[in-house]
Amino acid sequence: MPSETPQAEVGPTGCPHRSGPHSAKGSLEKGSPEDKEAKEPLWIRPDAPSRCTWQLGRPASESPHHHTAPAKSPKILPDILKKIGDTPMVRINKIGKKFGLKCELLAKCEFFNAGGSVKDRISLRMIEDAERDGTLKPGDTIIEPTSGNTGIGLALAAAVRGYRCIIVMPEKMSSEKVDVLRALGAEIVRTPTNARFDSPESHVGVAWRLKNEIPNSHILDQYRNASNPLAHYDTTADEILQQCDGKLDMLVASVGTGGTITGIARKLKEKCPGCRIIGVDPEGSILAEPEELNQTEQTTYEVEGIGYDFIPTVLDRTVVDKWFKSNDEEAFTFARMLIAQEGLLCGGSAGSTVAVAVKAAQELQEGQRCVVILPDSVRNYMTKFLSDRWMLQKGFLKEEDLTEKKPWWWHLRVQELGLSAPLTVLPTITCGHTIEILREKGFDQAPVVDEAGVILGMVTLGNMLSSLLAGKVQPSDQVGKVIYKQFKQIRLTDTLGRLSHILEMDHFALVV
Score class of each variant (00 low, 15 high):
T191P: 01
E62M: 15
A114V: 09
D86W: 08
S3D: 03
T260L: 04
K36I: 12
S50H: 07
N212P: 03
G246E: 05
K137M: 08
E144R: 04
P215E: 08
Y233R: 00
A237E: 06
G57F: 08
P2S: 12
L184V: 04
C275A: 09
A8C: 03
K108V: 01
A107S: 06
N113F: 00
F99Y: 11
S19N: 05
I152A: 03
E104I: 03
D238L: 01
D35Y: 14
G205N: 08
K172C: 02
Q222W: 00
C272E: 08
I142D: 00
E128W: 08
E128V: 14
L81R: 05
G14L: 12
L210S: 03
R51E: 09
E37A: 06
E4T: 05
A8K: 10
I167D: 07
L156R: 00
P229E: 06
P46C: 05
I166M: 12
K82M: 10
M126L: 14
V204A: 09
I44W: 03
G85N: 07
I166A: 03
A60M: 11
K102N: 15
N149E: 00
W54H: 06
L105A: 04
L220V: 01
I214L: 07
S117E: 05
G57S: 12
H17A: 10
A69E: 11
P192R: 12
H17C: 03
T5I: 12
I80H: 03
I76E: 07
G100E: 08
I127Q: 05
M169H: 02
A158W: 01
A114L: 06
Y163R: 04
T260Q: 01
D79N: 13
G26Q: 05
G14K: 09
Q55L: 10
K39V: 08
L156P: 00
S254Y: 01
V168D: 03
V168T: 05
R224Y: 01
G205L: 09
I84V: 14
E128L: 11
A114Q: 13
P59L: 15
G153Y: 00
C103D: 00
R266M: 06
A114F: 05
Q242N: 15
N216Y: 07
D245A: 02
P41C: 12
D120G: 05
P145R: 00
S19L: 05
R45I: 09
A237H: 06
R266N: 08
P229S: 06
R224M: 07
K137Y: 08
I92W: 04
L106I: 12
C52M: 03
P21D: 14
T68S: 13
K108A: 00
V90N: 02
T135A: 12
A157S: 15
R266T: 07
N113G: 10
H203N: 11
L28I: 15
D221Y: 14
H67Q: 10
K102T: 08
K172P: 01
K102M: 08
T193G: 08
G26S: 10
R164W: 04
K98M: 13
H22M: 02
N216D: 12
I143E: 04
P138K: 08
T150L: 05
L251E: 05
Q7C: 13
G185N: 01
P88G: 02
S199H: 09
G134P: 06
Q55A: 06
S199G: 04
D221W: 02
I188F: 06
P49E: 09
M89T: 07
I76C: 07
R18T: 11
I261N: 01
N93Q: 05
T193P: 10
A155V: 06
C15E: 14
R266S: 08
K269Q: 08
N225R: 01
N228P: 00
T141M: 14
Q243V: 07
E213C: 08
C165K: 01
Q222I: 01
R45K: 15
L251F: 06
A195W: 05
E239Y: 06
P70L: 10
V255P: 06
D140P: 03
K108W: 00
G31I: 02
K97H: 08
G96C: 13
T257H: 01
P273Q: 08
R161N: 11
G116D: 07
V90R: 03
